[in-house]
């Protein structure tokens, strides 16, 4: 391998670790050689290659989750220097050192930085975030979508279920059943689709039951934290409007 390390320059990491889902978290410090254009993942890979703490003692390599390495899969979300974000797009040159890595504790911690985001996928199932087109015969082409609508709907489709919005939300916690911003925005996306629209009431009903949209407390951290710049608070307000209309329609029997 080509020599890319810069003499004497190092990167410090303070990582919150946890051996099992129920065990107590603890922190360990690492100091690794600096290379140009490192991101947090390449730092973690370096620790994996040579799992020694800053005091020279050996330790188990740090576990993390990652996949696409280009901020589209959402797997490597973690809390980096206090802010939830993707480790792949967190460039070491742009981070203050020591770099503090913690798991997103809103979710169950599996091990070290690995979390279980199952509740988000469960939420997508609950609100039926898909377009049902299956039939026993060819249903033919669906209605067309206006280009202007497609353009803003595309922004919503960038959601990668990474969990950053849930981590930043003060109302997503053990005492609260709030579904979280991501699934609400997906309801807006699928209700905007000309075919998806045909089942819009089912999705609104899901958000109007326990642990639906009502848990939003308008702290608006989600929209500021979303790595994809999805207008989450606009989605929530738009779905608030739709659920309000749906509520009155149901009451009045329209």
């Amino acid at each position: 391998m080509a020599q890319t390390t810069v003499a004497n320059k190092t990167v410090k990491f303070i990582i919150t670790r946890q051996d099992t889902p129920d065990s107590k978290p603890y922190t360990e410090e690492f100091e690794i050689p600096y290379r140009a254009n490192m991101n947090v993942i390449s730092g973690l890979m370096e620790i994996q290659r040579n799992p020694k703490k800053v005091d020279g003692a050996s330790t188990a390599p740090v576990c993390w989750d990652s996949n696409c390495l280009e901020e589209v899969c959402g797997a490597c979300s973690m809390v980096i220097n206090g802010k939830p974000r993707q480790a792949c797009s967190a460039l070491v040159d742009k981070l203050e050192q020591p770099i503090r890595l913690e798991p997103m504790r809103t979710f169950p911690v599996v091990r070290d930085l690995v979390i279980n985001r199952e509740r988000m996928f469960g939420a997508l199932k609950r609100v039926k975030a898909w377009i049902p087109i299956d039939g026993t015969y060819d249903l033919g082409p669906g209605p067309r979508m206006a280009e202007t609508k497609r353009q803003w709907a595309y922004e919503l489709s960038k959601c990668m279920t990474c969990g950053v919005c849930l981590e930043s939300c003060p109302n997503v916690n053990d005492r609260n059943s709030f579904i979280g911003p991501a699934a609400i925005s997906q309801v807006r996306l699928f209700n905007a689709h000309p075919t998806g629209e045909m089942n819009q009431e089912e999705r609104l009903d899901a958000l109007m039951s326990d642990g639906g949209i009502e848990g939003c407390g308008n702290s608006q951290n989600c929209v500021r934290s979303c790595p994809k710049g999805i207008p989450l608070t606009t989605s929530i307000a738009a779905i608030n409007k739709d659920t309000t209309k749906h509520l009155f329609k149901k009451w009045l029997g329209v």
Partner: peptide, 24 residues
């Protein structure tokens, strides 16, 4: 009960709206 269900994370997210959330 609503207040009991909320966390305050103004230390990590020092946005005006988040402060207003806790202040509310």
């Amino acid at each position: 009960y609503v207040a009991y269900q909320s966390n305050s994370n103004t230390g990590r997210f020092q946005y005006g709206r988040n402060w207003a959330f806790t202040a509310q």
